[in-house]
Design a protein around this nucleic acid. Structure first.
Lengths: 331, 331
DNA sequence: ATCAAATATGGAATCGATTCCCTATTTTAG
DNA sequence: CTAAAATAGGGAATCGATTCCATATTTGAT
């Protein structure tokens, strides 16, 4: 492995000069620059990141904390981040909490010890403890996916859950559906549990539609729970004409139930979900849903973090992301 | 940020002693060890990785090169690796080629400059160039997913494509299916294109079953190509009673075609695939397929790499991975 | 009791870069 | 033509660890 010293000797200058060429800093004559450049070219020399980091306290590495790598959400978000970071010469150091919420804090610390330049956290919770830890961090942190508690100044990228949900409801109502059931998740999940449901309720109210007693059910994200929720809705009232599931997977559960009951989609009952999963696309009939652009979330998060690192002045603290209505055949 | 010097001062010993405690090396008295430990505990001191790496030439970072992060294969494999590496204090530096084969070599170089301890490559091709680059690498490289050209000594973890395919064929034949069509991919892909098809042909021969003229079709992994391939099979001969698709997604394409043709699955025609994708599970009827344990592949690859790094003697050069037949309702 | 081996600790060099501070040369202004 | 400013480049300290070597103290065998 060659070092800056070797290059200096070969080019007939001092290490200082080589360093200046490398970093484009200070005064330097064209002649020296060329000599150094030539030698670097010839030797294929690459400076040691460690030595550099030791002095500059910069690593060009971004730590990323995920709940689990192998999910659509995570992997697509990382794809997006990678795009932006790759361009700027940053690389991604991955850590996964494996769905263990406790570990989010632990990993936050671990990455700081690695002296990463910044951290992106795909949060699953927004506990006080976590927020506290983020606030204490000397390394900038950007949160993607969950709105961090109220007044905090932690930069975050979030999806427009309320808007997406509202838009889906408008579509259903526009298409003549009136008796709409809802399958949600529990309210500890702010994004999915609270906002999406609120939009459903608000839309029903706005259009003076009554909500039947059994029409609002709760699942746990799984397909099976969607099936059960659908069962509860229909066993309570046979004449519901549409099911709005807060996630695609629960929507797929509803599909299964309706199929079993020999109710045809969308003639008898419409079903819509949120997420635009692959399965939602290839199920029959294809499900109408909302697509979140996770790649875009990743890109945006990465850009915000870079802006912070570059000391940019007006970095947006919260960024609300767009969604896309995907109209298919289930309504 | 505290340094080893601070700790030494606080504990009333030299930096050398602190370092010895940190690394469990050399002689040290219980008393000194305790003093140092206490101070470390109190201060929450963590050694700088950069300084350490600069001296030891070890980074405790593994570079991982993927074709694309957001695929089932990649993300599950990374999940598996992460499990093993995490335990041993290694972290993962991710890079993605975004399906650009050329970039595999470029990233291989990039990671070496980062001075990672080892590299895991989820290869999409096994060109001469690539093999050459791997061979030149001073950093150990483990390849997952593709068998690297013949005689090479490059450690790799591969799936038993022939075995999986053969086992699926046996199941079909055991269940009385005789006129089996095949949807594959082109032979530039060794694992999927060549081995799986060979197993199909061998099984048919072994059981003295004839292969109709239009029964072997080629797709490009996409669902649509599966649809088209199925169309070509059935337009050629109406009485095929089973379709063996080399991948789930092409199998799903076949599902679509059969549904359109009002042929019921499995009464009229059986369909099987390989991959155990989520969609294969929730399509109706659920598809019989083969599950590859990508997590296991990741774990195994990680273990092999660690063995190499630890100078273990007999590291297996090739490791063939198991598969699991997932019997469902499509046959 | 004596001497070698084992144990314990510290000083200082080292890894490969950056950067502060200094000196020398060239350019520019008055 | 001279003094100040701009340009160019080098010496050496520095970042925070590890590790070689030297020295001091204990232990154990004879």
């Amino acid at each position: 492995m060659r070092t800056i010293k070797d290059i200096a000797k070969l080019a007939g200058v001092s290490r200082t000069t080589v360093s200046r060429v490398l970093n484009n800093s200070g005064y330097i004559s064209e002649k020296s620059r060329k000599k150094v450049m030539d030698v670097i070219e010839e030797t294929g020399y690459v400076p040691s990141q460690h030595a550099k980091s030791l002095r500059t306290k910069q690593t060009k590495i971004i730590g990323v904390i995920l709940p689990k790598i192998s999910t659509d959400t995570s992997s697509r978000t990382v794809d997006g981040m990678n795009e932006v970071f790759g361009e700027k010469g940053y690389q991604i150091l991955l850590t996964s909490t494996n769905l263990d919420k406790e570990k989010e804090i632990e990993h936050l610390r671990l990455l700081q010890n690695r002296q990463v330049d910044g951290i992106i956290l795909l949060a699953t919770n927004t506990d006080e403890d976590l927020v506290e830890e983020i606030r204490k961090s000397k390394v900038p942190v950007v949160v993607i996916g969950q709105e961090v508690a109220g007044d905090s100044e932690i930069p975050s990228v979030i999806f427009d859950d309320y808007g997406a949900s509202a838009s889906l409801m408008e579509t259903l109502i526009d298409n003549g559906y009136r008796k709409i059931g809802y399958i949600g998740v529990e309210s500890s999940d702010r994004a999915v549990g609270v906002l999406r449901k609120q939009a459903y309720i608000d839309a029903m109210e706005k259009h003076n539609l009554e909500i039947g007693e059994t029409w609002i059910q709760t699942g746990d994200f799984s397909i099976d729970s969607g099936y059960e929720a659908a069962r509860r809705i229909f066993e309570g009232s046979r004449n519901v004409d549409a099911v709005f599931a807060a996630t695609d997977r629960m929507g797929i559960g509803a599909f299964k139930y309706l199929r079993k009951e020999r109710l045809s989609i969308p003639e008898d009952v419409a079903v819509v979900g949120i997420g635009s999963s692959e399965t939602s696309r290839f199920i029959d009939p294809a499900m109408t849903t909302v697509e979140y652009e996770f790649e875009e979330a990743g890109r945006t998060g990465a850009e915000i973090l870079l802006d912070i690192l570059n000391g940019e002045a007006n970095v947006p603290v919260k960024k609300l992301l767009d969604f896309k209505l995907v109209s298919r055949d289930s309504l």
